[in-house]
Amino acid sequence: MQSPYPPRPPYPPLPAPSGESDRDLVARLAGADDARHHAVALLLARHWRAARDYAIVCLASAGPAAPLVATAAFHQVLGRMAGGAVGGALRPHLLVAVRDTVRAWAADDGTCAALPELRRPTGGRGLRATKPGTPERRQLAERAFRALPGASQCLLWHTEVEVEPINIPAGLLGIAPATATAALEQVREQFRAGCVRAHRELAPTKECRFYNRLLDIPMRRGGALLPDVRQHLTVCPYCRHAADTIGRFEGGLDLLLAETVLGWGARRYLDSRPGRGAAEELPHTPAPEAVRPGAGGRHRTGSGSGSGAAAVRPCSPASH
Rank of each mutant, 00 (worst) to 15 (best):
Q2L: 14
Q2D: 11
S3C: 10
Y5L: 12
Y5P: 10
Y5G: 12
P12Y: 10
P13M: 04
P17E: 12
P17C: 13
R23H: 13
D33A: 15
V40C: 13
R46W: 11
H47D: 12
R49H: 13
A50R: 06
A50T: 04
R52A: 13
D53K: 03
V57F: 02
V57A: 02
C58M: 02
L59I: 10
L59N: 03
A62P: 08
G63M: 03
G63Y: 03
P64G: 04
A65G: 05
A66G: 09
V69W: 07
A72M: 10
A89N: 10
L90G: 10
L94M: 06
L95Q: 07
D100Y: 05
R103I: 03
L115R: 00
L118K: 07
L118E: 04
G123K: 04
G123F: 01
G124M: 03
G124Y: 06
R125G: 06
L127E: 04
G133R: 00
G133D: 04
T134A: 00
P135H: 03
Q139W: 02
A144M: 06
S152R: 06
C154G: 11
L155K: 07
L156I: 12
H158D: 14
E160H: 08
V161E: 01
E162F: 05
P165I: 03
I166V: 12
P169I: 00
L173E: 08
I175A: 08
T179R: 14
A180H: 03
L184Q: 04
Q186H: 06
A193E: 11
C195N: 04
V196Y: 03
V196D: 00
R197I: 05
H199C: 04
H199P: 01
R200I: 06
L202E: 09
P204N: 01
K206C: 11
E207F: 09
C208R: 10
C208H: 15
R221C: 13
A224W: 11
L226H: 14
P227N: 08
P227R: 10
V229M: 05
V229G: 01
R230G: 14
H232N: 08
L233N: 08
P237D: 02
C239F: 00
A242Y: 02
A243K: 06
R248M: 08
G252Q: 08
L253T: 12
W264F: 05
R267K: 14
R268F: 01
D271T: 06
G275N: 00
G277F: 15
A278P: 08
A278N: 11
A278E: 10
P283S: 13
H284G: 11
A287P: 01
G297L: 05
R298L: 13
G302P: 13
S305C: 12
S307I: 12
A310I: 13
V312D: 07
V312Y: 05
C315E: 13
P317K: 03
A318W: 09
H320R: 14
